[in-house]
Structures are given as structure tokens and as C-alpha cells.
Design a protein around this nucleic acid. Structure first.
Lengths: 224, 224
DNA sequence: ACCTGAACACCGTTCAAGT
DNA sequence: ACCTGAACACCGTTCAAGT
């Protein structure tokens, strides 16, 4: 008996989990991740919306599968030998992975997915812990280093992704209609002075620089 | 002619913007901010849902009003004289304000509100820019310092708030069902070693410590 | 086995009609 | 002036019925 198409019982499938995940990625890449809806995804596949529930537990499960697939597929490059440089490089890797897929970072925080990414993503955590230990950190200090890097990275991606969505070249303050650009700005001299250049300054990618500052500060704290 | 109740034309109001904002805060404090819906808010006030649109442009406008009101009401304490300590203190202030109202941080990133908070919140930005300048930073470096602090702070609050929502005492990895706690964890020795204590370590509030590391690292970069 | 439409319990928002 | 219900265009999800 052939095991693939013959001898089956019941109605034949119209889709599969891999097909669903591929369609979801297509939809996200095309319209943005906030447009990924169960109904829209079913439409993309040309099937009934409720059919999806036979291949995926719920929408949260779908997002988790998407994230896991993405994480597993990421390259795993050679890292520098120096512990400090290795930690920075690992942080940059996390950052670049999520910067290319900003919705992933958003999902990761907004829904508390952090604790549920599987094996394929854990080697980055291991790399940072190992780097900290090589530098002379205790395990506790290593965890601290990782968590602080994680905070910084998530924050940078979320702020950058969301400000880009609205103000293509501005960032924090100097919206033309902002109250401080009008009258009464005497008590905000520094802000008023940099306001014109803020947008330009904010546009530069300074993530690696900021991360380096954070890592250096953390390692200095751990080993005085 | 009395100016309050007599001589008016048209149907009398059933609510007002301050009443709406107060009800919204009540709802958020009681049920969490994801439960704040236009319909639910109208229900809380005992009025028709569509009536709200006569006092508030839309839901985004409502959230912005809420944020502005909250920011305006925050205390404005005395800060240390030393520039570095002042920057750290200002960062801790931002953090504590949003940590007490985590949904505000979430709104701030998820909807790109950052560029639109008004005057009452800008003095913190000014404080950080002034501190950086006092330390010898250029205006560009000052902006960099502020932005990095902002990333770190937002990230910390979002990650902490959302992991707390699900895993009361865990944070990143050691969920009991995590793949690496089972077999095949030989290539993750550091992670495996700290796994049992991770939750406990992650529970401590190390924000000020992490922020200090970041600020020290940034200031060291700016003035070698 | 797998698929489906109808239905449930929600959203934010608009608009013509009422007071 | 202000308020309102009905309606529009959506959500995620369940479930009985079909193939």
C-alpha cells in the first residue's frame, strides 16, 4: 500500500500548516503585521476562515509558530573571541534579526511571548552568558547583562519601528506644532537649541554604539 | 445674565471631557488598559457610546489626553547637582512614572505617541540634555544620551510589565516545558546552570543599576 | 478527517434623526 | 448644542452540520 495518497479516509485537506505559515509571512511582508487576521489569512489561502483552526490552535499559536520558524532560519555567524566583543556582536545579531522583522519584537513584548521561544533562539542567550562568565562575571551578573541588553534592544526596535511608521524622519520632540517650539520655550534652552537637528541626529543608526556603551558599563560594574 | 445654567440653547450635556477622562482612569485602574473600549467607557458613564465622539475626536485622542493629564500631574522633584547623577535620576523618574502606569509605555510605543506629548513632559528631556552638556557632551551626543536612555527605559517597562502579566515570577527561559531543560542541553551549559535561579534573579529591580551602567558607558564614550 | 457557514460576542466609527 | 440607535465594516472563536 502506498502511504501518501491512497487508502486515506475522510475529506482531503485543502491546506497545511506550512502553507498557512507561508501565506502568513506573505501577508505580513505585503501589508504589515497588524493586517494579519485569521479571516484575511483564510482569504489569502482561498479557504474558509474556520478551517484554520484545524491546523493552528489560535492566533497566538500561529504567531509563535511564525516566530519559531523565523528564529530557526536565522544565520549563526562566527563571533569574535574577546568576551566583550562577543557580547556586543550577539546583541547586534538579536537587534538585526528583529529590526528586519519589527513586528516580531512587538509581538514578543505585547503578548509575553518571551518565555516561549524554543531552542533555536537560545544560543544567543548562551553566548551572552558565556561571554559574561569569560569576562569574570558571576552567573547572577551574567543574567543581569543579558536582561539589560534585551531591554535595550527591544526598546530601540519598538521605538524606531513605531516612530518610522508615523514620522518618517522625526523621532521625539520637534514636531512643528509642538508647544515648545512656539512661545514660552525659555525654560527649555537645550531642547530648543537642538530641536532643528533632532530629526537628522535621530536618523543615524547608533544601536551598536549605544549597546557598546551599555555593555562596557555593565562589565565595568561587574569587575571593578 | 448668569453665565452657567440660564440662557443656554439646545439639549443639556450629560457628560464632559473631565468626567470622561476620570471614568477612563477608573476603568484602566480596575480592569487594565486593554479593557478600555469606547463602548465600555460609555457604559461606565451610563451614556450612549456615540456620545463620546462629541467630547473626544477618537480613541487615539482619548489616550493622548489621558497621557498628557498623567504627565502634567507628576511630581517634579529636586535633582542632584552632579550631571551624571542628575541624568540617572531623570531616567529613574521617567521609569517610575511609566512603571506605575505600564499601559502608558505600551501606548507610547505601539502607536507612535512619542512625538506628541506636550510641554509638561519635556522638562525631563531638557534635564538630560542639560546634564549631558554640563558633562561636556556636544548637543549631538546629548541627543544620543537621551535616546539611548529612552530605549532602555521603554524596553525595561514593556518586558517587565508583559512578563508579569503571564509568568508572575519567571522572565525569560526556564519554563518547565522549555526544550533545553530536557535532554540535549549539553551545548547550553551556562543557560542550564543558571536556569533554576533565573526567575529569582530576574525578579529583583535592577533598573537603576542597569541605567547607571548605560549612562556611565555613554558619558565615557562622549569624553574619553 | 477535514471543511464549512452561521452564529456569538465583541471592536471603532459614521450618520441621520431626535430633543 | 448635544444626544441617540441603527448601521457599517471589521475582529477572534465555537459549533453543529456537511462531505
Amino acid at each position: 500500500m502506498p502511504r501518501s495518497t491512497a487508502g486515506q479516509t475522510g475529506r482531503p485537506p485543502v491546506t497545511s500548516r506550512p502553507e498557512i505559515l507561508a501565506a502568513a509571512r506573505r501577508l505580513i511582508d505585503r501589508d504589515g503585521w497588524e493586517k494579519l487576521t485569521i479571516r484575511g489569512l483564510a482569504g489569502e489561502l482561498g479557504i474558509g476562515a474556520t478551517t484554520l483552526y484545524h491546523h493552528v490552535r489560535d492566533k497566538e499559536d500561529l504567531l509563535l509558530l511564525l516566530l519559531t520558524e523565523y528564529a530557526a532560519q536565522l544565520p549563526r555567524p562566527e563571533l569574535p573571541a574577546d568576551p566583550r566583543d562577543r557580547i556586543v556582536a550577539a546583541g547586534v545579531l538579536i537587534h538585526d534579526a528583529f529590526a528586519a522583522w519589527p513586528w516580531a519584537a512587538e509581538v514578543l513584548t505585547t503578548d509575553g511571548f518571551i518565555a516561549r521561544i524554543g531552542d533555536p533562539a537560545l544560543w544567543v542567550v548562551e553566548t551572552i552568558l558565556a561571554g559574561a562568565a569569560d569576562h569574570g562575571c558571576t552567573p547572577e551578573q551574567g543574567v543581569l547583562v543579558f536582561r539589560n541588553i534585551w531591554y535595550f534592544t527591544v526598546g530601540e526596535i519598538l521605538v524606531r519601528a513605531n516612530t518610522a511608521r508615523r514620522h518618517p524622519d522625526a523621532d521625539f520632540p520637534p514636531a512643528e506644532n509642538s508647544p515648545f517650539t512656539g512661545g514660552g520655550s525659555e525654560h527649555l534652552p537645550y531642547l530648543t537649541a537642538v530641536a532643528p537637528q533632532w530629526g537628522e541626529i535621530a536618523q543615524a543608526n547608533t544601536f551598536a554604539q549605544g549597546l557598546t556603551a551599555l555593555v562596557d558599563g555593565l562589565l565595568a560594574q561587574a569587575k571593578p
